[in-house]
Design a protein around this nucleic acid. Structure first.
Lengths: 347, 347
DNA sequence: ACATAAAGTGTGCTCGAACACAAAATAAAA
DNA sequence: TTTTATTTTGTGTTCGAGCACACTTTATGT
């Protein structure tokens, strides 16, 4: 498999490399005769332009801004640092700069502020976790008008201006939790779907998980679980959830729709006589600790590190080698128990 | 963050780019004075050589041969084609050629034959699934003597001459199966560890899985399962396994150590009154079909596609950009149920 | 037929690293 | 001091794609 260069093609077609270049890039100023000669050669061989040479000639520096929630406030985002570092090291010598900006996940003002700052930097692309729907939409439009590509991770939001999305199918992840729950709890018992610290704005992903979870159980023919939804907030010491557990005798499982699963495990410690299975989300240290003790049975891994890494590398390869960007990249939904979490942490 | 070139450094140090080049590559012929000047500049700035330019200048074509079992004979290897295609498309325009050679996984002669052919091709690297221990060892030595890098996937074998290994921790995967089995079967019941079509030579990975599985149960304090190992072969219609199931009344689960899990599910169809949980390996079409029907409860995903892809991309990046190759890359061990297999198939 | 405009074609330089080779500077020998 | 040997330094070319610019050929108008 010989590697052909533009020079080779020029020689084969009996024209100059300039003409070949014009044909390949369709910029006209080529006679019928020359066009035919070059096209004939191109049809016969498989020309693969040398991407190294192209990129070297181009020799542009690209800036990608990553907008993420501060991991000190929500530890779910902690692994993203590793994902960014990995992408950074991989592409820094190829002319890609990654510039991380953190915002407070509890404050829309902080989110808007960071977006303003990033807009001033005028990067080539932005990758962000769009925690606040309205504010994110507004910012995305602004980026689009400034010809800045926008990648979205973690939660999908609809918009014409978004280049791509990297994340998971949240409804399906609810179904997975339901299937697991079905396997480890007795039929016809009661199960609680616990939404912890739900805020009005970014609660849609909790709803999607609940929908998937309920869908699964509704389609079961051989049993009839009793599902109850419970909203509970930290400022109230999760009293609603505590009361729900306290007032029933038939609860066999709790599905926690967020990474704060460990909070539920902690509450359950108050009821040593009950056997309640817990399925929740994400490999936080505290979650893993309860997974090891057996208080939490399964976790579903949303893989934030991989999400940001994939988003960044798609953008980088697009800038450097003109690779197409997949509009949507859905990550596998990993089931985690006490024995396999470690194999994910080392990734 | 300015990008410095050799020319920049030369100017800053007041020498020519040739001198800077000699200092950076430590090829001597540089005076004390010049060396000092250049080193001073290098210490002050963070010089990142442009990998595109380096690779373009190098402009060498690398050939990687992939030696894999014929997927028509063992469908476990089917996904590898997609992994190879992915790596091929990613690197073909950067001067990497991937040349796949299939062998018959039931024939050492076929394996040796293919190795001889590959040795004649004299590629820059070989990546293989070393199904036959002795034969693989011999071939690896031959490659090493011809200065050909050797990557190993799927099952680790020890050798000085191996560049790297991509695969899974098989003992841990046995432990994962055990933990799952514990969750879905009644305490103190009987569990069969089924080795299907075990050949003497490549059986070590089955043993490792069994060891992990048994280890987990041995360390359980709160229960005492009865574990039995059962070897069974197709040419005998898996009679040993059939008899084992037939002769006991207390079997609650079967752990199948290979991708032929569906064969066990098929046997179980003969015992409609028994409730036997099955945990096995790999996303074969037939396995998934039984997973959907509920006959198989969990599968563990060994991810052959990712294994070959990672092996290939590590080699490619090493050749192109001189990136270091990790000696050992252990993939996460994915737990699969009827609801999340689809998210893995689309990867 | 000749001037002028338009269309088509080829040459040469750039990107940054790497290295060959020539040129200059210094050291050693005469 | 001059010659010769040795070390040190700088220049120029290459890799392949891309594009500016100059140059040549063909077309149009008077």
């Amino acid at each position: 498999m010989k590697k052909y260069t533009i020079k080779d093609i020029a020689q084969l077609a009996g024209v100059s490399k300039g003409t070949v270049d014009r044909v390949i890039h369709k910029r006209g100023k080529v006679s019928e005769k020359a066009l035919e000669k070059v096209n004939k050669v191109l049809a016969e061989i498989d020309y693969q332009p040398n991407l190294m040479a192209r990129s070297l000639k181009n020799n542009k520096d690209y800036i990608i801004c990553a907008l993420l929630p501060n991991p000190d406030i929500d530890p779910y985002w902690q692994p993203c640092k590793k994902g960014i570092d990995q992408a950074f090291n991989e592409y820094k010598s190829l002319g890609i700069t990654i510039d991380t900006h953190l915002f407070d996940p509890t404050s829309t003002a902080s989110f808007l502020e960071v977006n303003t700052k990033v807009l001033e930097i005028n990067p080539d692309a932005v990758i962000m976790a769009p925690l606040f729907y309205n504010e994110a939409k507004k910012s995305i439009t602004a980026y689009s008008e400034a010809n800045i590509l926008v990648s979205i991770i973690n939660n999908r939001i609809g918009s014409e201006d978004i280049t791509n999305f990297v994340g998971q199918d949240l409804m399906q992840s609810g179904r997975i939790a339901a299937r697991l729950m079905e396997m480890i709890t007795p039929k016809d018992s009661e199960i609680i779907i616990a939404h912890l610290d739900e805020f009005f704005h970014n609660a849609s992903f909790m709803q999607q998980k609940e929908k998937g979870f309920r869908d699964y159980f509704e389609n079961l023919l051989t049993s009839d679980y009793n599902l109850k939804t419970c909203n509970s907030i930290e400022s109230n010491e999760y009293k609603t959830l505590f009361d729900a557990i306290n007032s029933s005798t038939n609860i066999s499982g709790i599905f926690v729709t967020t990474s704060k699963t460990y909070k539920v495990a902690k509450i359950i410690e108050n009821f040593p006589d009950l056997s309640i299975k817990i399925i929740g989300y994400d490999l936080l240290e505290k979650n893993i600790s309860y997974l090891n003790s057996g208080a939490i049975d399964f976790l579903i891994h949303q893989n934030p590190k991989q999400q940001i890494y994939l988003g960044l590398s798609q953008l980088a390869e697009h800038f450097l080698f003109d690779k197409p960007i997949a509009e949507e990249k859905l990550l596998p939904i990993d089931i985690i128990n006490s024995e396999n979490y470690n194999s994910y942490l080392n990734q």
